[in-house]
């Protein structure tokens, strides 16, 4: 069934986020040939703007609604909502996709509420059956799954990063670019500043590789070899609740039922015993490696590869061998 789609796209420092390209690819697939629009907002320079639009075109966007304003330097619900509403009106979309990122999960519910619609959050699979879409999403942080469908109004949903394929269509279209004029007076929330704590810039939920530490890491300093391993693998560092509660690292890194649910290609658990609430947050990773001194640790039951040993010996050895490999 043909359905006009609208994709909410995000960029970070001028680069489109891969989760947004995943959403666009899914939109192209679900549209069955109907028009696919993309909305994107920010404070742009002309070069970045045209690069971004060219990239969105190459992934199958028919039309790009763009908002460019100094007030859009940082995300805020009020300003983004106005952009979203305008693009939705202009595109006449019957379905809207967001990535389930910090921005997507903040904006999508407000937008759905504004138009009196439902929202299916954090989908990991979308199937089409007799013209109807079935959305699969994890509940209890992945301890169970549910399938949902829309019974009234437009289909609005967010998709979990790293779960949908990015597909580049064989033929490159030239998308229509629509510069929107949006009114930004009397905004209720103002972002005063953004303090970068996440130095390496790899977001946990989008990372392809995660090196996570638990109580076995023993101290904040103990995370250093994990950071180095994450660095040589181009990944991000995460932690268990035990490590966060012990003060070894920031709660922003916590993976589990409280904290973030992640699905990287490779998850390396170092000194993590594997409490149920932690396993819930990472069991859907494609490949899991566990390094732990205790051969009885429950983490080994979900691991594809287990190493019983001292992480402070194993991790530096891994770093050394990977470096040798890349040097070859």
């Amino acid at each position: 069934m043909k359905r006009r789609m609208l994709v909410f796209a995000e960029h970070k420092e001028g680069r489109l986020r891969s989760a947004s390209l995943e959403a666009l690819s899914l939109a192209v697939k679900l549209s069955s040939g109907a028009e696919v629009s993309v909305v994107i907002a920010g404070e742009w320079d002309d070069r970045l703007k045209s690069e971004c639009c060219a990239e969105l075109s190459s992934y199958g966007a028919d039309r790009i609604y763009i908002a460019d304003d100094p007030k859009l330097r940082w995300y805020a619900p009020d300003s983004w909502m106005r952009v979203m509403r305008k693009a939705h009106e202009l595109s006449q979309a019957e379905a809207v996709i967001f990535a389930h990122t910090a921005i997507g999960k903040d904006l999508a519910p407000r937008f759905a509420a504004r138009i009196g619609a439902g929202l299916i959050s954090d989908c990991t699979k979308v199937e089409s059956e007799n013209g109807e879409w079935l959305f699969t999403r994890p509940i209890y942080a992945g301890k169970a799954l549910q399938t949902k469908k829309v019974v009234q109004g437009p289909a609005i949903f967010t998709i979990r990063p790293n779960n949908f394929e990015i597909i580049k269509p064989a033929e490159t279209k030239q998308a229509d670019i629509v510069e929107m004029n949006v009114e930004f007076s009397s905004l209720r929330t103002i972002v005063k500043e953004r303090l970068a704590k996440n130095a390496d810039g790899v977001d946990l939920t989008e990372a392809k590789v995660i090196v996570a530490g638990g109580r076995g890491v023993k101290s904040a300093d103990g995370f250093k070899p994990l950071q180095q391993l994450a660095e040589v693998l181009g990944g991000a560092v995460g932690a268990s609740r035990g490590a966060c509660d012990a003060g070894y690292c920031d709660y922003a890194l916590q993976i589990g039922q409280t904290g973030k649910v992640v699905t990287p290609d490779l998850y390396i658990a170092c000194g993590i015993s594997g409490a149920i609430q932690h396993l819930a947050g990472m069991s859907a990773s494609k490949v899991i490696v566990a390094i732990n001194k205790d051969p009885q640790a429950p983490i080994f039951q979900v691991a594809d590869y287990g190493i019983v040993g001292d992480l402070f010996e194993v991790v530096p050895e891994l770093i050394k061998q990977i470096r040798n490999l890349t040097a070859e």
Binding site: I120, G142, A144, Q146, Q152, G306
Partner: peptide, 25 residues
């Protein structure tokens, strides 16, 4: 309701993996 739950289920169980052996290297 705008959306309804069609089905709930458990995720596929992960197969037990392989324990590596030998020296650390």
């Amino acid at each position: 309701n705008r959306t309804v739950v069609v089905e709930q289920m458990l995720p596929p169980a992960r197969k037990a993996g392989q324990m590596l052996s030998g020296t650390v290297a």
